[in-house]
Design a protein around this nucleic acid. Structure first.
Lengths: 343, 343
DNA sequence: GGCAGGCATGACAGCGTTGTCTGACCACCG
DNA sequence: CGGTGGTCAGACAACGCTGTCATGCCTGCC
């Protein structure tokens, strides 16, 4: 019971406390704690006993400070509750965990300003690296961020400026597979309900749709309605397009929410349209008919991004790389041609 | 350009660099950075200019170390990709963010061992507090954790041992509302498909079901089938129970997954059963018929837990408190009595 | 017996901040 | 003109750990 341990008995014990109690130096305690070689077994045992008795736990903050790394990476997304992002989060956390790192997750709520603030806070903490699903394309290619030297991997959307590691989904291939699937089932008049063109992915998918429409030589010009969409707006557009001389017989929806709006509209209107949705969703095979979707694999994307990041942390100095992850068409029935009477 | 800033020019500049460049002391830089009073405006301006020029950013790790707090809280759950947990995560992160804290999220993958390891790692980092959805009831009422003094709030399931702050969902009330709803619509023979009784919540819901069954004076003994369930097992049990002299006319499912299994079974069997599911799910109103559910509000629970935690961090010393969050019955149609011919 | 070499251990500095204390300088007052 | 008090600034130590280097001791060999 030295004076040292006395006055801090309420506080957590430090290596100094352990050292005093075990009659060794702080460095020896450090060696024991970190399983470094060069400590006689009996000394080590004695130290361990004191550690146990005092309930000592190494202060990782101090350690990080000394070593200059935090064993922490961060993930910045728009909204953690969104399944697309939470699957990414789970995957990134997993990669971090198996490498003894911890993950700080932060939401930017879609605001570029907030996103920048969040990233700066993370940099101030000296996280070892960051995975970002950027809110907009200008995002954080900020001088301060550049200067920080903190490795960053972008996901789902690219950013302008200096090339950076980026993991994207194959929007073009996804849309093409959807169109081809519908065409293979006899459809010729296919429409796209896309998301707000403010989103890069929405624009990508629109372009892919138009391009595929042309390259397959489908008649007429491609029917496209970009968002934002409400169930009502979807219904109106749909009604219009199915009453032309060349009625739309199949639709592709640009994301999850639109798929749902469309399903509701279809149910109300009792229209026998075929449908391929972009983005899988949990109960796609429970609705009637089960919805065929273009499945992007957020978990795989998150994993890939984390792996890229860790490669950088391990010293990979190769030029920034952009990886495009494939999508998969999950055929469930809604993409087949149905006659109006089938229900 | 002093020798100091020279040899570290590649590395991030520190307050010492700024101080040297601005011909002031480190402490003055600190004061400027932290907007402390007592710095002449022109001095402050000069310092700020150098900060800007050098791209200095305060090293929060050092700050934390000095101040003894990390401005970090942590959330430990089973699986971040699970919507129940990711909604909690989003809510907790939000509470943290508005209080200038950051959130470390960690998955324990349902393993008590891993959970303990994860929590110890977080304690070693000196996170200011932890929100835990414990994997089992013995969880982490571990001596080491106790001794760490780190405030912990438990969620969804209580733990044994010393009372701790806990936020639970009103399983009893939720089940009762489900039963009462079905009874109000004429059902007398109601069955429960519960989850694996290894889970505390599953046991709670079973007990609530049995108790409500009795207190409402329903005929016969309560029909209960506890998990784990597969779609097949559900189908078999269901077939059996609907072929007795007193056929089951309504079921309550103990969670999300079971609800889905049951919906699949119902579709195959073309049984006209009424259904109330426990746990809301995203497309509950898109399936046919829309599923009536007992809605627990994970976001509200997470928010509550985080608020409790921050109260502790601000010095609240009152005895540990258990909060039971209410559930809400969302009536959507599947709970009404239907005749076999209605479809 | 003397010395090289290996092993166990310790002293010390330093990671980048901030809290405390001290000091320089100036103005104002009696 | 000495004393009082206020403002601005800096010196210094400390937070808890680890990397580097030094030291002491023992063994073994010539």
């Amino acid at each position: 019971m030295t004076a040292l341990s006395d006055h801090r008995t309420a506080i957590r014990p430090t290596m100094a406390d352990v050292a005093a109690e075990a009659h060794v130096s702080v460095k020896t305690v450090s060696r024991v704690v970190n399983h470094e070689p060069g400590v006689r077994p009996d000394t080590a045992e004695r130290v361990r006993a004191v550690i146990e008795r005092l309930g000592f736990r190494r202060h990782d903050g101090a350690r990080m400070m000394r070593q200059g790394r935090t064993f922490t990476i961060a993930l910045v997304v728009e909204d953690l509750a969104n399944p697309f992002y939470s699957q990414i989060g789970a995957a990134v956390e997993r990669e971090a965990r198996i490498r003894q790192h911890q993950l700080i997750t932060a939401s930017a709520e879609g605001s570029p300003t907030r996103e920048r603030a969040v990233i700066e806070a993370l940099i101030n903490r000296r996280v070892d690296g960051i995975v970002v699903v950027p809110a907009d394309e200008s995002a954080s290619s900020d001088a301060a961020v550049e200067a920080s030297q903190t490795p960053i991997v972008y996901m789902d959307r690219p950013v302008r400026g200096t090339p950076r590691d980026t993991v994207l989904s194959d929007n073009h291939g996804g849309i093409r597979s959807a169109v081809e699937h519908l065409v293979a089932h006899g459809h010729r008049s296919i429409a796209l309900f896309g998301d707000d063109p403010a989103f890069w992915t929405a624009r990508q998918r629109r372009e892919a749709f138009v391009a595929t429409h042309q390259s397959l030589g489908l008649p007429g010009s491609a029917r496209v309605s970009m968002g934002p969409h409400s169930p009502t707006s979807v219904r109106e557009t749909l009604t219009r397009w199915t009453q032309t001389a060349d009625p739309t017989t199949a639709v592709i929806t640009g994301n999850n929410r639109i798929t749902i709006a469309l399903l509701l509209a279809l149910r109300d209107l009792r229209l026998p349209l075929s449908l391929v949705g972009y983005d899988d969703f949990e109960l796609a095979d429970l609705v009637d008919p089960p919805v065929t979707v273009v499945h992007q694999d957020p978990a795989a994307m998150g994993q890939k991004a984390a792996q890229q990041l860790f490669a950088r942390l391990l010293g990979d100095e190769s030029p920034a790389q952009t990886v495009v992850m494939p999508t998969r068409l999950v055929v469930r029935g809604s993409g087949l041609r149905r006659s109006p009477a089938s229900r």
